[in-house]
Design a protein around this nucleic acid. Structure first.
Ligand code: MN
Ligand code: MN
Ligand code: MN
Ligand code: MN
Lengths: 146, 146
DNA sequence: CGCAGAGTTTAGCCTTGGCTACATTAGTGT
DNA sequence: ACACTAATGTAGCCAAGGCTAAACTCTGCG
């Protein structure tokens, strides 16, 4: 073949690409979302969020957690001073709250659909980041009307 | 505080970390899955999968698609000779089939839950990769029993 | 037959998010 | 006071997945 039939493949270009672009965009903030939620959890549970605790709970090494926190600081979601704990900015707190609520809804939905609790717990962690506001509303409506 | 209470934080370490590790593992194969499905689509639709078409549909530039295909070849999912189209190995075909079926179920589930079709189309692209076999079965059961 | 242009590859850059190894700080207890 | 140790930070490596720019190959057409 190798024909230059750009006219045939043009209509679907923006179509498919848009989908993948949204998925990539969601993925690029997934780490920020998980760390925000985790830092908020640790502060609530332990009174402070130490790098070591963040790292062990996220399942990564300390330098990896340090880098992630550096990115969060850069993006205005967290603050910290050397050898002190990590804290969330108001924006970070807002993000953490939104992310926690969404995570909970996704988890509950999976369980409502008959997914075993442990499997739901594992799958929700990755799925949550790709659930848009519109989809979240649909999940909530389903759970409420059940 | 700063007490050395490792005994308190030990029990939850494997717990939380396991969740994030699974999400990271799923993410690390997401690109392979999407490309496998896309190459299979293109071969079905156009008789061959050219780099340019793969790239435009994935919403990336040609070099990015070339690199992704290189990884697929390295992992035994695709084959190609310079300046020729890309083909899937039997393993690649198997992956594509599994991924397409899962994608379809996730899409149908979202629509069944009342998510608008266009939103469902966008969200499913990212969510699919985090849906385990067990969860997929639950989705299928829900759709069948509806 | 040869060439122009479409398609492909290559080179090289960047960011992110993993890691190990090592240096530095700070808190605790003697 | 001070040493020990845990925590933190830093340096530097790697792979993946984006990109641009530029070189290369193929092919259909004149
Ligand atoms: Mn998550
Ligand atoms: Mn989460
Ligand atoms: Mn996908
Ligand atoms: Mn897909």
């Amino acid at each position: 073949m190798r024909v230059t039939d750009q006219s045939i493949s043009e209509p679907d270009l923006p179509c498919d690409a848009e989908r993948f672009n949204q998925a990539r965009a969601a993925q690029s903030v997934a780490v920020l979302e998980d760390y925000a939620e985790m830092i908020d959890d640790l502060i609530a549970e332990m009174g402070e969020a130490r790098i070591t605790d963040i790292a062990s709970r996220m399942g990564v090494t300390n330098p990896t957690a340090t880098k992630a926190v550096a990115r969060m600081k850069r993006e205005g979601l967290a603050v910290s001073r050397p050898y002190r704990g990590v804290f969330l900015t108001p924006e970070g707190v807002t993000l953490a709250a939104r992310v926690r609520a969404r995570h909970q809804v996704v988890l509950e939905l999976l369980i409502a659909l008959g997914v075993p609790a442990e499997t739901a717990r594992l799958d929700a962690e990755g799925m949550e980041h790709h659930v848009s506001d519109v989809t979240l509303k649909a999940f909530e409506a389903f759970l409420a009307a059940r």
